[in-house]
C-alpha cells in the first residue's frame, strides 16, 4: 500500500483545489486580530490596573482552570462534575512541595502538574467504561469526593479542615519577590496562563485536535475510520488534568495557603458555570467566562452579600433556556447587523 494510490498523473488535482484545501485547514490555527487584541489587553491590565492585581490573579487562575475544563467538554465531549479534583490536588502538591521539598515556585508548579496529570491518567479509564454521560458525571464527581475525604482525613499531611499552614514561596526565578499587592503574583499567573494557552491552542489545532473534534461529533464514524477513540480521549483528559493542576498550584503559590475548599464540590460546579458564561469549545470561553464570573460575583455580592449564588444560578438558568448556541452567535449577529447598517 502506498500513500499515493490516487495521485495518478491523469487525475492530478488542480493546484487551486489544493490551495483552497490548505486555506480551509489552516483557518483554525491562523491568529486572528481579536486574539492579539485580547492578549494585548491582558498585558496592559498588568500595567494599568496595579491596585487590582489580586483580583486579576484570581481571574487568571480561574480562567486557566476553566480553559482546562474546555479541553475535555468542548473538545472531547466529556461532561465532568469533578474537575476540581485536579485543581485541588495541584494546590496541595504545590503547598506540600514548598513545605517539605523546596520553596522554589517552578518546581512546585511542575510537580503539581505531574501529580494532577497522573491522577487524570489513572482515573481516565473509568470514564471509558460506559460512555454514558451520567456515568461520567458520577465517576468524576466520585473521584473528587474521594479526594476531598482523603484530604480531610489525612490531617497530619494536609492540615485537614484547618488548611495547610506555613506555605512559603521563594522569589520567582530568584529575583521577583511575591509581594502583598500581588504584582509578582499577577505577572506570574498571566505568563503561565498565556504559555499554557498557546500550548493548548497548538494541540487543538493539530491533527490530534482534529481527531478529537471528530470523535465528539461522531464517535461511531471515528471508530470505523480506525481512530483509537479510547486512548485519544484519555490523552486529552490527562492533559486537561495537568493544566487544572497547574491552576491549583498557582492558587497555592499566590495565596500561600491551601484549604479543603480547593476540593469542594462548588469548585467543580463554579468552573462549569465559568466556562458556560464564556462559551464552550473555542479556548477563550474559559478566560472570558472567568472575567464575566468575577465581575458578576462582585456585582451580585454588592446587591445581596450572602445570596449571590441565587443570582448566579438565575443567570445560568437563563443562558441554558435561551440556548447556548444562540448566545454564542449573538456577537456575530450584532456585528453582522452593524456592517449591514453601515453599508446602507
Amino acid at each position: 500500500m502506498t500513500d499515493t494510490t490516487f495521485a495518478t498523473p491523469d487525475r492530478a488535482a488542480p493546484a487551486g483545489t489544493e490551495r483552497r484545501a490548505g486555506r480551509d485547514l489552516l483557518r483554525r490555527s491562523r491568529c486572528k486580530p481579536a486574539e492579539i487584541l485580547f492578549w494585548l489587553a491582558a498585558a496592559a491590565s498588568f500595567f494599568l490596573l496595579p491596585d487590582r492585581h489580586l483580583l486579576l490573579s484570581e481571574i487568571a487562575i480561574l480562567g486557566l482552570f476553566a480553559l482546562s475544563l474546555d479541553l475535555i467538554i468542548g473538545y472531547a465531549g466529556v461532561v465532568s462534575l469533578g474537575h476540581g479534583a485536579f485543581f485541588g490536588l495541584g494546590a496541595y502538591v504545590a503547598g506540600l512541595t514548598s513545605i517539605h521539598l523546596t520553596a522554589e515556585p517552578l518546581t512546585g508548579l511542575a510537580l503539581a502538574a505531574l501529580a494532577a496529570g497522573l491522577l487524570g491518567l489513572l482515573t481516565g479509564p473509568l470514564l471509558l467504561l460506559r460512555a454514558s454521560d451520567l456515568t461520567r458525571l458520577m465517576v468524576t464527581l466520585g473521584v473528587a469526593m474521594l479526594l476531598l475525604e482523603a484530604a480531610n482525613r489525612a490531617a497530619w499531611l494536609t492540615g485537614g479542615a484547618d488548611g495547610l499552614q506555613g506555605v512559603m514561596i521563594d522569589p520567582l526565578l530568584g529575583r521577583f519577590e511575591f509581594d502583598l499587592f500581588g504584582r509578582t503574583a499577577y505577572g506570574y499567573c498571566l505568563v503561565v496562563t498565556f504559555a499554557l494557552f498557546l500550548i493548548a491552542r497548538r494541540v487543538v489545532t493539530s491533527p490530534y485536535g482534529l481527531s478529537l473534534r471528530a470523535i465528539r461529533d461522531n464517535a461511531l464514524r471515528a471508530r470505523s475510520m480506525g481512530i483509537p477513540v479510547g486512548p485519544r480521549l484519555l490523552a486529552i483528559y490527562a492533559f486537561s488534568a495537568l493544566i487544572a493542576g497547574i491552576a491549583g498550584a498557582l492558587l497555592t503559590q499566590t495565596t500561600m495557603f491551601v484549604s479543603l475548599d480547593v476540593l469542594a464540590f462548588h469548585r467543580s460546579a463554579d468552573v462549569l458555570l465559568v466556562l458556560v458564561l464564556g462559551g464552550v469549545g473555542y479556548l477563550y470561553g474559559g478566560l472570558i467566562g472567568a472575567i464575566a464570573f468575577k465581575l458578576l460575583q462582585d456585582w451580585f455580592s454588592a446587591l445581596t452579600p450572602q445570596y449571590w449564588m441565587f443570582w448566579m444560578g438565575l443567570v445560568l438558568l437563563v443562558i441554558v433556556l435561551v440556548g447556548r448556541d444562540r448566545i454564542d452567535a449573538l456577537p456575530r449577529a450584532i456585528l453582522h447587523r452593524f456592517r449591514r447598517e453601515g453599508r446602507a
Binding site: I73, D133, A269, L273, V276, F310, L316, L317, V320
Partner: peptide
Amino acid sequence: HLDQVLFSIALVFMAMTAADW
C-alpha cells in the same frame, strides 16, 4: 446532557440559596 446538567445545577443553587434566605 451538558445543558441539562447546567440547568439543574442552576436550580440546585437557586433552591439552596432561596431556602437559606
